[in-house]
Simulated scan of single mutants.
Amino acid sequence: MTLLSGSDLHVSLGGKEVLHGLTFEVAAGEFVGLIGPNGAGKSTLLRAILGLVPSQGRVAIGGGDSTTMSAMERARHLAYLPQEREIAWPVSVEMLVSLGRAPHRPAFAALTHEDKVIIEQAMRRMEVEAFRDRPATQLSGGEKARVLIARALAQDAPLLLADEPAAGLDPSHQIALMRTFSGLAGEGRAVIASMHDLGLAARWCTRLILIDKGMIVMDGPPRQVLTQEVLRGVYGVETYLGEAQGAFVVQPLDVVGGASAVPNDGASA
């Protein structure tokens, strides 16, 4: 089942075209890593899908034309975690996470039992239930990130868009987040996450869309996308590609031509 599709998607910002005719589909059960260098257009693509920047072309969400959807209807189909981690109001952590249920109930309506169960599950998944009563503005950067992810999970939408969700998290919580996203895909939902950590993308994503200069360069399984040739050409880096515990390992080593760059050591690409 296709949860999201884009056809010939163009975006111009400040008079300059930054996305050049992107076409793609995302199906239920996929964990898609959106990768590419800084300025490639990853965040712009996510914002175009959400209707936050003007675009040309067609975006369909859950089979329906996104331009005909109200903001509330769109929020029931997809949740969004932006790059920004700022929290303006000193509400409690639990209250902030509960805002994820807003698309599913009338304004000012009390939380239902189902709402409370989903909120609790989201906080438990992100390990923030221990400080549920603390003002969210008093949290560390990593804690804020986990709380905002929990809010997105509480939205319980079939599709989750996340812009650099692992930024600011320590390795343990990065891995826990990847497990959560993988679990959501396993439940029949879909996740699209903009990522700079190629190691996490290679290990956890079922599919990668590589964007460079506003165009899709590669789209496929991690082992197909993350090759030495592609990584040199797009990122300008020498990379170790290998295996560990049955998983694909990708570790950038140096810029192309750097003094400390080393060969692949026989690992398969």
Rank of each mutant, 00 (worst) to 15 (best):
D156L: 03
V262W: 04
S43A: 09
A27Q: 12
F24N: 01
M123R: 01
G41H: 02
P135W: 09
I87T: 07
V230S: 01
F31N: 07
G41V: 01
R101N: 11
I118L: 15
M178G: 05
Q121P: 00
L9P: 00
R207D: 11
P222Q: 08
E94M: 05
L139A: 02
G141P: 06
V217E: 10
A145Y: 05
A244K: 09
I35Q: 06
L253C: 02
I211M: 07
L139G: 04
A247G: 11
S260G: 00
S140N: 07
R203Q: 15
A122D: 02
G220T: 07
K144Y: 08
M69V: 05
V234F: 02
L161Q: 07
P171L: 13
R189K: 15
V18W: 04
D115K: 07
E17N: 04
R76V: 00
L9G: 00
H77D: 00
A48W: 08
V18T: 07
I192A: 02
P252S: 03
S182H: 12
V93L: 06
E30P: 04
S172W: 09
D115P: 09
S7M: 08
A261T: 09
I35C: 15
S172L: 13
L81M: 05
K16T: 15
L4S: 00
R76Y: 01
I216W: 02
S140I: 07
P90R: 06
A40L: 06
G188A: 01
I87P: 05
A201N: 09
V234A: 06
L160K: 10
G39V: 09
T206G: 15
L3C: 01
T68V: 11
N38Q: 08
P158L: 04
V147L: 08
E127G: 08
I35R: 04
H173P: 03
D170N: 12
H113Y: 03
D219A: 08
T23D: 14
D133K: 15
L208P: 10
F248R: 08
A60K: 10
T68E: 13
S66T: 10
S7H: 15
V250E: 05
S92F: 05
L160T: 13
Q228H: 14
A267K: 07
P222D: 08
H113G: 10
K116C: 04
I35H: 03
A259K: 14
E164T: 13
